[in-house]
């Protein structure tokens, strides 16, 4: 029994340490892990317009589309396997074109998507989908939430104006952690 416990603790510590080492050596992976976690938590503080069929309380799964190649896909898939957004299951898709967006409630625009945020905004104008981006200046262009890294920390900006136009309400608890809020 003792030996089993010891082996378990030993293996666990090795796992933890190696995971830590892995994170240090792979800042890219660390960044997307965090982004995935943040994105998942945004879902708690975001309300879609009540009269839309995309209401949070429906039984339908919540669909997230990742536009362009991104390290976010892996970690987000992992989260969607284990967790739910409220009562809804989460479904994550990787797409390469705005035409594939369909009825996704959340669109993450990767920095690898070559047409940039403008293409998405043109397409999704006033439609109730939360648009999240990761390029500097995107929030000014109209992205609802934009990730940025400052002081070696992951932060985010919010554009309340465009979000409201799309029928999306962003909770004040989320806003208090945003570095910039455009109204």
């Amino acid at each position: 029994m003792r030996i089993k416990q010891f082996i378990f603790i030993f293996l666990t510590s090795i796992l933890v340490l190696s995971n830590y080492a892995f994170q240090v050596r792979q800042p890219q992976g660390q960044e997307y892990n965090l982004k995935a976690a943040f994105l998942y938590r945004f879902l708690d503080y975001v309300e879609w317009n009540n009269n839309s069929s995309w209401n949070n309380t429906t039984e339908d799964p919540l669909r997230i589309a990742i536009l362009g190649e991104s390290g976010l896909y892996g970690p987000l898939m992992e989260i969607s396997r284990d967790k739910k957004a409220g009562t809804r299951t989460i479904r994550v898709r990787q797409i390469n074109s705005v035409s594939e967006i369909g009825s996704s409630q959340v669109i993450f625009v990767s920095r690898n998507y070559k047409y940039g945020i403008d293409a998405v905004l043109n397409r999704m104008l006033d439609k109730p989908a939360l648009i999240i981006s990761e390029q500097k200046g995107d929030v000014e262009k109209g992205s609802h939430i934009n990730f940025l890294i400052a002081d070696n920390k992951l932060k985010f900006e919010v554009n309340l104006k465009t979000a409201a136009r799309s029928g999306i309400k962003i909770g004040s608890q989320l806003l208090q952690h945003a570095t910039l809020i455009k109204k």
């Binding site: 965090l34 976690a37 938590r41 208090q176």
Partner: peptide
């Protein structure tokens, strides 16, 4: 503090 922890916002 839940949201602060979620978004790693020490200052908040």
């Amino acid at each position: 503090s839940i949201s602060a922890i979620q978004f790693l916002d020490n200052e908040a």
